[in-house]
Write a protein that binds this DNA or RNA. Structure first.
Lengths: 190, 190
DNA sequence: GCTTACTGAGACATACATGTATCATGCCGG
DNA sequence: CCGGCATGATACATGTATGTCTCAGTAAGC
């Protein structure tokens, strides 16, 4: 078996697989989970048959998409150095990272098609919760609400920010800044 | 044609129609837009054929559901007397009303199946925007963000609050209070 | 009791997305 | 230049949801 037949390591494989994933992110974020794979294949510029050669079924595609999004988000969060920043700064970095990624992968959040619940919790939920818990412990964040509830409300604001960027009503930078600012300080003037 | 044949005004019609709408709200909020009408019919305690007699197709059912939700929400907002309350109080009443209704009709918000975009804007968007604009004009709400952006962020927090109630992690009252409190004052302690 | 009309059960046609299989084509490396 | 291999086009089988239709049962009203 020559090396060129090793599809999964050939550079062309990566290119096509990435194109399909990219198209999937685009199409799914537009039509939601109701999008059909024919549209994804068309958007990727490949035939439907080829799509199935790379991802044997819908679930595999969604899983790969989720894994890709999770990897990218985890990488950004890792780079963000959350634990070395102040809580305020960490919240702003969280907002930037999540809006930047979510802009393309919003489907995964709105649906419950998390690739790996445990992995997502470890890579994303953990660091986020850590920031909130640090803020609560230091008295910088209100103590009348649990970290979990605060996290959910923050996530909701971030989802709204992502929607604003998808509708081109705000840039990613402005949207994430707005969400972080309102979440931290509220709607009242400082 | 005797009066009893006038299906659309018979009391039984209303009862069955309401039961179907109620079941639809329940099933759709659980399975999202992917729910099938057979499940809705079963949940309503009627046969699939009967469901189609009342709502000739899926779109009609969704439209009726949206209209019902919109009517209920508009009624609550009307009762809330938003324009006579302070901005803070108005925001809290908005949160209560929307969480109470959205608890059952969250599908409509997450999907884009608004029954009548214009009507929804007039009955809900208008009053909400009015509250934010009043707050901005009176200096009670920050001026660095437009009323539209604030509205979206608030809506995002409310969606998160609705999810919390649906997962029974918080009661409707607590969830709406939390969303309103964080939105008004932010995550920092007062 | 009888008529009327609503209902449930089920068959049925249809549309569509999914997933599989086949075959000819065309490109790329050797 | 040639052989292999990925691709595209296409047909196919399948499952599922939608919407329609018919018919018998049944409950309510006269």
């Amino acid at each position: 078996m020559p090396a060129t037949s090793d599809l999964k390591t050939a550079p062309r494989f990566d290119r096509t697989a990435a194109a399909i994933l990219d198209a999937a992110a685009h199409v799914f974020s537009e039509h939601g989970n109701a999008a059909n794979l024919a549209d994804v294949a068309a958007a990727a510029g490949v035939s439907r048959a080829t799509l199935y050669r790379y991802y044997p079924n819908r679930e595999a595609l969604l899983k790969a998409l989720g894994a890709h999004a999770l990897t990218e988000l985890a990488s950004r969060l890792d780079d963000a150095g959350l634990e070395r920043a102040t809580v305020e700064e960490a919240v702003e970095r969280l907002a930037r990272a999540i809006v930047a990624v979510g802009d393309r992968y919003a489907v995964l959040a709105s649906e419950q098609c998390t690739p790996d619940e445990v992995e997502a919790e470890r890579l994303v939920g953990g660091p986020m919760r850590a920031v909130f818990e640090r803020g609560i412990a230091s008295g910088l964040i209100r103590q009348d609400l649990t970290a979990q509830v605060l996290l959910e409300l923050f996530a909701g604001a971030l989802m709204a920010a992502i929607k604003l960027t998808q509708r081109h009503q705000l840039g990613a930078e402005e949207a994430s800044a707005a969400a972080a600012a309102v979440f931290l300080n509220g709607a009242r003037p400082r």
